[in-house]
Every structure is written in structure tokens, then in C-alpha cells.
Design a protein around this nucleic acid. Structure first.
Lengths: 191, 191, 191, 191
DNA sequence: TATGAATGAGACTTCATTCAT
DNA sequence: CATGAATGAAGTCTCATTCAT
């Protein structure tokens, strides 16, 4: 197993254990064990337990943004763009249950430094800002303060995947998914 | 100091310390010290550290619901009712900074048993369900599934107070507060 | 419930809890609870937890000696006397399972002061010494040092009731009971 | 100091402290201190304080059985074999005062799981069963149930070393030692 | 005499991190 | 770079005992 492999193995193990038991209830020893790595090795790759969590947070947020953002938008139909975006985000969450749960549990966790959260927010959710700004210019989205709207969008997204986490079978129901988007869109749309 | 007083002193101390340092970074010894109570006394009132958090959560949620709900509604103007409710909720959060921060930090915390969260949600936020249902009957609110809407409302409220926590002076700005309500209302309203 | 009643209730509760969980694993609070008495009351009757154990030990040893010793001996047939004594002792243990278990667990416990043990031994087992001495004078029992024989008798008795504790149904089998006496008697008898 | 050394140092420290103060009156901290080891190290080798006691019990019982059993028997003279065995057992106890005291105090302790006691009994004292069985086949030992005789032998042995513990100088007196064997042998022998 | 809330020392155990191999 | 035994500070919780009511 190469160096990169072991580092990744640690992150993978940490993800499942953090989600299953929480950050503080997960010992570095248990992470190392599940990663099939010695404790010492774990601390070769991450100077601190906190850094594992931060690295995990950033890597998942980045992966999420990449996967969601990779497809082009049709600038002519903003609502359709927004809907595609929303559905892809929901799909991603449903396709990545551990990561979804990680979002739900740790997006607002005090265990992740505010700075890290802020960086991740702006780096990975920047395209949402673009979408909101563009919509405002086209008169399709309310001319509300961007920062407040961004927080609101984030909150609605978390609420949606939290809901689908608590009611797994409803995640397959197109109606629920459509409704979750409608709530989101109506909140910010002018018409 | 009476029995009730000491119990309450523990809860008060726990509130400020949990908010300031987080649940796991707060030791039971520090809670007892700040409450001016012996460690043994703390465990005389609460069998477990976890139970302190749960009791705190329930007591704050109950207090919140009582304070918000105490005023009568004008059944004839649902939007106005909703707005009054929303503004009172925001006011309450701004008037109770510790409790507000507690909500932001712990509403979704894995440290609070899902069961406790569910009980608090249904017992104390039942009147929101009533408002949504009434609105649906009057055709003012979309006929979406109640459970999904409730989760969405909760998410938007948390986002709002999170925003006002991060930008304290904007909490005094009526425009921001109005916008936060408009986002909420538009999400669920039919017109 | 009178004063005596409460004192006895504490002793009764202590007996069952000490036997079930051991001395250190039994809290004074649990004793008070099972005795339906307040903790404070418990400490009105016994200055210390240790004293409860000591009082219990003495009271059981005394009861045992009284019950065993109450019947007269037929001085003409020492072996028969010894057998009667042994059977009554075994019967007593089988009829008083809690007390039996208490003997097995605490007769040699370091939690009971050596002094208390010694006093109980000599006060309550004095008639065994009489029996041994008498037997020696009649030439029926080996002329071995009394103290060593007494220790040996005690050890055999404990072994016997330990055995019947571990194999409850064998306590009803006359053959096993007879054998346990034969072992005891042959050890000390001359013929 | 190697890994094995530290583990053994913990066991050695535990032995002397348990014997001196009893199990519950001995803190893990004091064991670690006397073993010149960190608390964490203690728990690195033993998951629990209880397991230290159990490990100690097994290791001493095993050592005892090995030391006693190492010499060959003269199958032609069973009583002589038994006597040799008994004397070696008494010698062993007198030569290992801490272990002797440990036997006296903990052989019947409720702090050692019944299962552990049973395992130790059968695994390490199996050769006693052999001796008893062989004696029965030769008609030298009563045809009593083996399990009851084994318990009786154990009880007599404990009584003997208890006696020699309480009266140290009598342990050097051949007469007392001879008597202790005679009691044991007569109990089980046919003639 | 009876009560039970209050006490605080001390017990066991965990765990992030280090470092010699 | 990898290992895992060792560390010891710190945490949660227990419990015999006291004392004001």
C-alpha cells in the first residue's frame, strides 16, 4: 500500500467512523485500526486528530462541488439551471450516503474551525453566488442581500438532505424531490 | 439555595459553557464550578453528562415555544400571523443570545439523541404544523407534505439566526429581518 | 416500623445485596433503598458501612450457633453426636441459602476485621472444641493440636457448603451428605 | 525494560498490594506506581482492573501446579506419593508467602469470576483428580464422588496454609505439618 | 428519630500523541 | 516511512458520610 493509499485509507476510515459515532466518540486508535494502519502512521500523515476532520471536510466539499459543477449551464433558462443543480445536489447526497450524513452532522459542527468552514463555503459554493447574481441581473431572483440568500440556500439544502436521511424511501419519490426544489426556488424567485 | 435552584444553576452554567466551548470541551467539573455546586451535586440531579445536554435542550425548546406562542393569532390574515410569528422568533433569538447560539450549535448535534430531538420538535413546534395546515386549507400555502415543509421551515429559521449571529448589527436592520421572512414565506406561500 | 424493625430491615437488605453483589459493589444507598429507609436513617443505626458487615457477620454466626447447638448431645455416642451436629449444620445451610452464601463468601473476607472473625470463631464454635476435646479424652479422636483441627473442621465445612451451593440438587441427595460427613469424621477419628 | 517485563512488573506489584490491602482497597494508580509504570501502560496490558486479578490468579495457580507437579510419582506407594505432594504444596506455600496469602485471600473471592476459578481448578489441579482416581482403583481411597472429594481436598489445603499463615513458627514444626497431612489423608483413605 | 440533598475526594479508564526501534 | 508500546493528563462518575430541616 503506497503512501497516498494509506492517507486515503485513514480518511475513509475516519469518514465512516465519524459519521457512525461522532468526532469525539471516535478514537485515533479506532481510525488506525479500521484503516489497517498503525497509530504512528496515522500521525505521520496528519499532525493532529483535528486535522483529519478538517482535511475530510475540505476533501468532501471539494468533491461535492466538482461533481455538481462539472456540467455546463444553459444560461437562457435560469430556473431550469437551478433545478438541474438542485437535483444533482440531491442525487449526489443520495448516491453518497456517508458524505451526505457527514454534511448533515458536521456542516455546522463546532469541531471544524470557523475559518475552515468559511473557506470551504466560499471556495466550493462560489458558483451558487454566480447563479444568484445572474438571476438578480435577469430580474428572476429577488434583489436581496447575497450573503443572507446564500445562508438561506445552504440551510434549505441541509434541511432537504436531512429530511431524505430521516426518510430514506422518500428520496426515491420524484414528488418529494420536486417539492424540495420548489420550496427552494420560490423562496428566492421573483415570480 | 433550594434544590430547584441548584438544578437550575447547573443548567445555566451548562448553557453558557456548552455554547462557549462546545459539549465535549466542557468538563462536568467546570460546570459544577461555575454553578457553584459540588460535582456530586451535579450528578445528584443528572445521572449523566448527556442528560444535562438533553434536559437543557428540552427546557430551552419549551421556553422558546411558550414565549413565541403566547400571543393570539388573527385568523383572518395568515400571512400577517406568520410574519408576527417569524419576527417574534427572530426577536426571541436576538433577546436570548446564549439560547440562540445553543440552537445554532446543538439543534442538529449528534450529541442529542434523535428521540429527544423528535420529541422536542413535535411537542414544542406543533403550532407551526397548525399554521401550515390552516394555510393549506385556506389555499394560501402550498399543498406540500407537512413533514418536508416543517423540516424546511426549521432549516430556514436556523439559517436566519445563524446569519444574524455571524452579522450581529444586521439583526437590528429591519430590512434584513424583513427579507429573512420574505424568503421563508415565499418558499411556502402559493401566491 | 419501629426502630428495631428498621435496623433489622437494613441488615436484611445488606445480607441479600452483599451476597448478590459483594461488599464493595453494594452501596449504602442501595441498601437503604432496598430496606425502604433513608440513607440518613441507615447511618443512625450503623456508624459505618463496615459496621453493617461486622454486625451482620456476628448476627448470622450467632444465629447459626444457636440453631445448631440447641439440641442436647448423647454423650455416650460421640460419632453419632458429631454426625447429628454435621447434618444439622448442613441442613441449616441448605435451609438458609442467603446465610450459607454469606458464610462461603465472607468467612475469610478481608473486609471483616481479623478480630471480629476470631471472636466469632471462638464464641460460636466453642462447642466444637468441646466435642473435639471430649473425643480425645475418650480416645475416639486423634490427639492432634486442637487449633489445627478446628481450622481443618472449619475448612471442611466451608468446602461442603460451597459444594452444595455449586450443585444445589446434590444437597438433597443423602449419599452426598453422608459422604461429606464421612470425610470430616475420618479426618479426625482414630479408628 | 521490555514489554513482557512491564506486564510482569504490573502483576508483581498487584500481587503484593492485593495481598497487603485487598483488591478494592488497591487503586490502579498505586499498582502502576509500585510497578514503576504509567497508568496508561497498565491499561495497555490489561483492559480492566478485574482482568489483572484474574490474570494474577491464573498465573499463580499455574506456577503452583507446575512447581508441585514437576516431580515423578512412585506409583507403588500411593500414600507416600500423596504425602510428598502435600508436603511440597505446604513447602511451596511457605516458600512463597505472598502467593500463599493470595491463595488464602482470593481462592474463594467473589472478585474472581466463577468461570476463571473453574478453569484454574480443572486445568491446574487435574493431577489431583488423577491421584484420587488411581487411589480408588487401588482400593486405597474411598469410592466417593470425585468432585466432592476435590472440593474437600482444596478446603483442607486452604485451611492448612491459613493455619500456618496465622501461626508462622508452626510451619517449621514437622509435627504440625505431619498432622496436617494425616488429617487430609485419613479423610479420604480407606484404611 | 427520620430524611435525603449535598458534598468532594478519589476511583477507573480513555486517548491523543510521542519516540525508540 | 512504518510501527505500536508507552505515556500521563484529564475526564466522568461513585459513594460513604454529613447535616439542616
Amino acid at each position: 500500500m503506497s503512501k497516498i493509499d494509506k492517507r486515503q485509507a485513514v480518511l475513509d476510515a475516519a469518514l465512516s467512523l465519524f459519521v457512525a459515532n461522532g468526532f469525539h466518540a471516535t478514537s485515533t486508535a479506532s481510525i488506525a485500526k479500521q484503516a489497517q494502519v498503525a497509530t504512528g502512521t496515522l500521525f505521520h500523515h496528519f499532525p493532529t486528530k483535528d486535522k483529519i476532520l478538517a482535511a475530510l471536510f475540505l476533501s468532501i466539499k471539494t468533491k461535492f462541488a466538482d461533481d455538481i459543477h462539472q456540467q455546463n449551464f444553459d444560461g437562457d433558462n435560469l430556473k431550469q439551471d437551478a433545478q438541474n443543480l438542485w437535483q444533482r445536489a440531491i442525487d449526489w447526497a443520495l448516491d453518497h450516503p456517508l458524505q451526505q450524513q457527514f454534511f448533515v452532522n458536521f456542516s455546522m459542527s463546532a469541531d471544524i474551525p470557523a475559518q475552515t468552514r468559511k473557506v470551504a463555503m466560499h471556495d466550493t459554493l462560489g458558483f451558487i453566488v454566480q447563479l444568484l447574481t445572474q438571476g438578480q441581473q435577469q430580474g428572476l431572483i429577488h434583489d436581496y442581500p447575497i450573503d443572507l440568500m446564500l445562508e438561506n440556500c445552504h440551510g434549505q439544502y441541509l434541511a432537504a438532505i436531512r429530511f431524505f436521511t430521516d426518510h430514506p424511501h422518500k428520496g426515491d419519490d420524484p414528488r418529494y424531490r420536486q417539492v424540495s426544489f420548489e420550496l427552494f426556488w420560490q423562496a428566492i424567485a421573483t415570480a
